[in-house]
Design a protein around this nucleic acid. Structure first.
Lengths: 198, 198
DNA sequence: TCCTAGTTAGTGAGTACCTACTTACCTAGG
DNA sequence: CCTAGGTAAGTAGGTACTCACTAACTAGGA
């Protein structure tokens, strides 16, 4: 692992523990095992370093979205949704602390938003992926035609985001059994809504 | 309005615009129209001031929760849920920037969590209020008995939280027409799920 | 095989600035 | 005269960032 990556690793670690705003260049340098001046050989300034950390270390939903794209027609709709909910809770749980803390720095938020948009990333992508899957199931006839796939996707993933938010707020760990039960009842409630005539 | 309240107002305003972490005592004092030293006549230190701001200025869901408690049996379930969604989006939209930015300061988050718990507030309260309403409707026979009111509440409010989150991230204003349509399709999707047999 | 010059990766010791917080003082009302 | 509310002018410590420097390695010409 080269120096730049070591610095990114250390910065991500310090950001997660000390919090975004309280992270100092001195602390990052010490955690990485280099001097402060070395940071500035590899990054223009602190903002540049933070954007690089966000780019490199924010978890991505892409692998699961790709799996979801292969699923229409296979497996039960309910189980697919429950699996999506479990993956989404983990995804949001991992990304939330870092994402939320960017809101403390409006300037950084703006910079991150533009750089993320340029890369085609963004927080709405999971919802879009799930909505695409639901539309495919709708065309395959497994979801009733009047249903709204966008609303369905927003409901399921919103509940997952909220779950992760509450866990972060309470500073609790994930309990796999509780997640399993929660994801299941979300899927049950949602599927019945999507598949049953009024 | 007394000095203390003026300071709280100014602090809340600066926190919203400059961001939580970047807010300085000097800036608050200037915005309030007092000297920096005056802040310390009214608050012990900066943390004490911030906790007071959070206590005084965080929006509350209580008025709407109370209205919701009077509703079971009156009006259509769908319209009640759509109204709840609209209120929740506004509530989350207002409280999210401040709430999320606390995550940048783990120490402050912990302090706020304990002080909020002591006052009986907390981010889970809206979900609980909605779940209580849904249970009442279930007992009144307007929701099928096998449905899970907790899951229903989590789905609806989660989607609203997510909507507010995305708006904050995109730094867009609320578009009442879009909110109306969004809340409606959420309620439609959810109600069908809660009221129809499989 | 040496000598030399350039490059790369890193650092110790600062600097200029900003921050939360304090002190000594003032002033008006009761 | 005392006290509550207010201030100007600090202080001590922390912050991002810079600069002059070193040591190790590389390339290439005589």
């Amino acid at each position: 692992m080269n120096t730049r990556d070591k610095i990114l690793d250390a910065a991500a670690h310090v950001m997660r523990t000390r919090g975004f705003a309280r992270t100092t260049t001195k602390e990052i340098a010490r955690a990485a095992g280099y001097s402060e001046a070395t940071l500035y050989k590899h990054f223009q300034d602190k903002t540049d370093l933070f954007l690089a950390v966000l780019h490199a270390k924010l978890p991505t939903f892409r692998p699961f979205a790709e799996e979801l794209a292969r699923k229409p027609g296979a497996g039960s709709l309910r189980d697919n949704l429950a699996a999506t909910a479990r993956a989404a809770i983990e995804f949001y749980r991992e990304s939330f602390p870092m994402t939320a803390s960017i809101f403390a720095e409006p300037d950084l938020l703006a910079a991150h938003r533009t750089s993320a948009a340029r890369r085609g990333a963004g927080p709405h992508r999971p919802v879009e992926a799930l909505a695409r899957y639901l539309r495919a199931e709708q065309e395959a006839g497994r979801i009733r035609p009047e249903a709204d796939p966008d609303a369905g996707a927003a409901l399921l993933l919103g509940a997952c985001l909220q779950y992760a938010f509450l866990l972060s707020f309470a500073q609790r760990e994930l309990d796999p059994q509780a997640v399993e039960a929660y994801a299941g009842s979300l899927a049950d409630t949602l599927v019945t809504g999507l598949t049953t005539a009024r």
